[in-house]
Each structure stands twice: as C-alpha cells, then as structure tokens.
Design a protein around this nucleic acid. Sequence first.
RNA 1: GGGCCCGUAGCUCAGGUGGAUAGAGCAUCAGCCUUCUAAGCUGAGGGUCGCUGGUUCGAGUCCAGCCGGGCCUACCA
Length: 642
Amino acid sequence: MFHSIEKKVSSAFHSHIQVRYGIDLAVPIEQPRQSDFGEMAVAAAFQLAKQLRQAPKKIAAELVAEIAPIEGVAAMEVAGNGYINIRLDRGAYGAALLGGVAEETVATGEKIIVEHTNINPNKAAHIGHLRNAALGDTFVRMLRARGHRVEVQNYIDNTGVQVADVVAGFHYLEHKSAADVRALLADPAVRFDYYCWDLYARTSSYYKDHPESLPWRSATLHAIEAGEGEVAEMAHLVADAIVQAHLATMLRLDVEYDVLPRESEILHLQFWAAAFALLKERKAIYFETEGKLAGCWVMPGLSEEGKVIVRGDGTVVYTGKDIAYQLWKFGLLGKDFYYRPLATYADGRVLWITTDEPVESGQQFGHGTRVYNVIDSRQSYLQDVVEAGLRALGFTEQAAQSIHFNYEMVALSPRCCAELGIELSEEDRKRPYVEVSGRKGLGVKADDLMDSLIAKALDEVVSRHADNAAEENRRVASQIAIAALRYFLLKYTRNTVIAFDLQEALSFEGETGPYVQYAAVRARNILRKLEERGERVPDFAEELGREALARQLQAEDFWQVLLAASKADSAVENAVTAGEPAHVARYAFQLAQAFSNFYQKYPIIHEQNREKKVFLLWMTDFFRRQLERTAGILGIQIPAYM
RNA sequence: GGGCCCGUAGCUCAGGUGGAUAGAGCAUCAGCCUUCUAAGCUGAGGGUCGCUGGUUCGAGUCCAGCCGGGCCUACCA
C-alpha cells in the first residue's frame, strides 16, 4: 500500500517537473527525519536548484503550489531549506488497507535462477554453509514475494578435489574398499558426514606433511572423471550420501531446492567437452608451452599469470566446469541434462536431480534470463573468471546478467574457539578472528549448532509450558531455534564478516528471531483470547467506516504503528533492489518492536469504547498478518505458543 | 606488488543513489508482572563516525593520500 503511493507520488513529481521545467529527474521518495514532518519527503527541489540556479525553497514552493492533487495525499508543505513533506489521507489509507487493495507485483516474463548452498559433498555442513543457504533461500523468498519466477539450483560438485581427497583417505589411508564404505554407511552407530569431516581433515594434513603422496589426488581425480572402477564407485557412495545429509540439514532450516545439477553429468554428458571446444574455438583460452604452467590450458587476462582451466594432467578445474554450467544456466550450451526425481517435499513439490541416463522426465530447467550465484567473497576471482569466460565467448549480455551474490565469510573469534575446545596456533590466537576451514576440520557443524539451539529453546519452552505435550514443546522449541539461527545469519549485511559468537547466536532476546515470533504469537493470542471469552472477531469492514478509521487514526500512536505495518511491500522491494536480506530482517524486527509497544500501551480486549475496540482488534489482526508474512520471507515460522 | 572489503557507543552491528538533532541490540544502572504471556515494556548514562586534506550551501556517506585489519592474487573451491 505504502509502496504504491510512493510510486504514485514519485511519478507525479517526475512528470510535473518534466512538463514544467523540461528536466528529466528521477524523484526518490525519502523518509522524513521526524515522524511529525509527515510520511514522505521529496528533496527534488535541491536537485533542481542547481540546474535552475534558484533557491531550493522557492522551487519547492512552486512545486507544491502547482502540482496537481495526488490520490491518497492530504497535504504537502515546504519545510527546512526546501524539503517537501507529504502527509497522507489517514482515513483513506486505513480504508484501503482494510479493503485489502491488492499490491501490484512486478510480473515480468523473466526467469531468475538462484544458485546457492553448493557445498562440496565430502563432509558435514558447517556454519559458513548455513550463511550461504540462509542468504540464498531468503533472497529466493524475497523475489518470489515480489512476484518473480525463480528456480533454485544447488550445484553438486561430486567430482572435485574435495571429494577426491576424502576418497583418497578411504582408499590410501584407511585401505577401505567400496564394500567397506557401504558397510560404514549402513552402520547406524556411524554418522557418516561427521566421519568424513574428520577423514577430510586427516587426509589434508597428511598431504601437507607428505607432499610426495600428492599423486594420490591426481590418480583419484582421474578415476573419478573416468567414472569407472572401485575408486569412482566410492566417490559416488560418498557424494550421494553426503548430499542426502546436506539436504536433511538444510531441510531443518526450511531450505528447499528445485534441482540439483551435478558435476558428474557436466562431464559425462560432454558439457565440459562442448564448452572446452567453444573456448578453444573462440580463442578464450590457450595452450601454454613454457614456464611453470607448461602443458596447461590457460585463460589470460585476469591475473598476472592467467587462470589455469585444464591442468597439466588433463583434468579440468572447478572453474572450467563452472563455465560450462553457467552457459547451460542461460541455455547457451546447446546441451541438456536428463532428470530424475530425488525427493518430494512436504508441500508436494518435487526435488529433481540430474542424471546421464536418457529418460523422458518432462522437466526443463535452466534457460534463465538472470542468474544469481550465491558464493562467498573469497571466490570473487573465480566468479570473475566465469564471467570473463562468457564475455570471451561473445555472450556479453549474459555476462552482465551473471550476478555474483557475494557475502563475507563466517569466522570464529579466538574466544569462541576456546569455548568450543578448538585448539589454535600461536599465530591464530592473535588474530581478530579465524577462518572456518573444512580442510583443517576447524568449524562449528551446522547440525551440532542446531541441536544446541533446540536444547536451549526447549528449556525455555518447558519452563513456561510444562503442562503441554512433550512433542508439542519440541516442535515449538525447534521453530524457535531455527528462527534464532536464521535471524542471526541474516541480520548482518552481506559484506560484514560474521565473527561467530556462540552467546549471541544462542540469544533469544533483543534483536533476534524469537523476538519477532513472540510479537506475532501475542497478536494471535489476543484474537484467540477474545473468542475464548465468548466474543466474536468483528467484521471489520462492516463496523469500521472511513470516518471511524480517520477518527481513530488521528491518534499519532495508532497512525505510526499502522504505517509501519503497511510498509512490508516497500521494505521487501527495497531489499530486493539492494540485494540485501538483512533489510528485511531489520524491518521484521522494527515491526515486532512497534507491535510490542502498542501491545504494552493499549489494552485491547478490555477496551470499553466499541469503535475503538474494533479498531484495535483490526490493527492487531493487520499486524499479525504483516508480521507473519514478513517472517515467512525470512523463513521464520510462528509457533503455536511461546 | 596488484585487486576487493572493513574501521561508527564498552561489545556486536544499522546507517537507499550526499540533506533536517548520527541509530538499534547486547552489556551497565533505575523502574514496570492480582489487568490481552516479563522471550516483554519505560527511562538513564555512553560518540573526535580511524587520521589528514579536498569537492559542496551541506560529508558518517563522494574524491585523494595516509594508518590499522581482513580476504584474494593455486594445476583447491
């Protein structure tokens, strides 16, 4: 609602300025500094002042006097040195909200692909992966809330070095066969993703201490790329099992996907071969014959020595396969995967996975017009290489639509490491924070963190609702824990390094997910209590006319609170434009805060005046809906009680 | 050496394309539960927006140069 008036005001000013002064000026709508200045502010007079060489104040006065009335706007006034403050017609605004005037969405034909999570399937997920998934999933929800068509892809790098290292660990260090790995998988006492977590760290450190063993890696990679034999079979076992573990972990956070494109198919279905041929043909890469990169295919330009795409031993680096994948996402490769269903989510949506066996699934994925790759900032260089690859192939438009949705890493503070019993080197102890490293086995596992959060939440829930069924309490505790975790991961803007702090992550008070949930639960309780007392929730449209609304909304408190609640669409739209899920989180918190205030200050059920009571109930209901919707965009559920 | 990012209250962080008196949470202190759930609310203290210049009517925000920190610059991702 607020958003559509904003747009109306902006375009009214834009066209008036165009006609009156012949200037094409984008007119942003600002928030006045103080709420008693009005609901919107326009600073266009300052911009015009430069071009017209007149005082801003004079121009502002002219604009206010000459512009035609705008629907929904009650008054405009010049303030300060040339601000134009705008006051809305409160009764009309309330009536429109009550009438449920539909918010227009931006339905374009565009298909947006968001790739996120993308964890190497060789070990349990850690806190850093959770940030990726929370950001990606929330951004998807934001886009969908604005009416965009979005496809969620989670790329599975099942033929890369990281999988190879775990397989090499099984094969060379533990002398295990495929049958042994199978037995391990079947053993209920073994948590396979945790087992691999340790094995991966062990193998990595073995390579470090015994560089002469590095040929193991190359041999393993070759075997995996060839796709045949014992080693390749082990790689499949490991990757498939870990993918299942990751999906389960992410599902705890309500993160779901549409399709899992796998790197093995990129190789087997000759995606890479096709991309390789294209890269060679268009001279985007060259074969190095001398120097230390002799024998490699190299893409020049981005760093001093160029980026190796094909190694001296003939295997492809991840970035090479990523170029092929990126081409496919845009439908530029002229090749396609086959798909088979992997799982069905609770709402009936099917998760598909790629396969190299020709099957007619009737599914089509890819062919996006815009692609967001949710990948941490450390990989900016690699993402630049992928983009440069597209450009070198002549796909400049698609290169421009390839968006690296980057974010800073999650790190651990030395204090946090101490609390978690993680030993640090002398050097690391002096740092402000230490990188999470799967290679070093250094990090907080996602499932462990969620378990701690749930245990803590359960304590709180049981202390308040000891009488409720244990199962109910567990469900509520889990919803609270997930809300706390998602909010914690989302409240930082993308380019802030999160120095993970256990105390802060475990907090359920202040600016947290549970605070938002609590406000929504209270709003629901009011409506529930009303019915428990034998009263009915009124027919708001019936009882609250425009005059009544105008009367009630004269109270500044009520008006401000309603205004805040009505800005959900505006907040989400701005957050989409900024590419910043943190903005939605902040809005949700502010909304909850406004309601908590309102709740504290005004008894609703006990209000004696009928009109006021109905009005307060309507406000409560409207708040509840907006809060639930916004929380939903953050992937936060509202528990039945708290 | 080159590229990207960060520096704002004791701590952790927000501060749309420059604009009105720099904000929030935590922590600290003082209050509020016989009244819709205290995971809450009210109030207080707390700031040289890293430093120095520049652009401008106006700079936390833009530009330059410093200082401090992080990441990348791999035939790992």
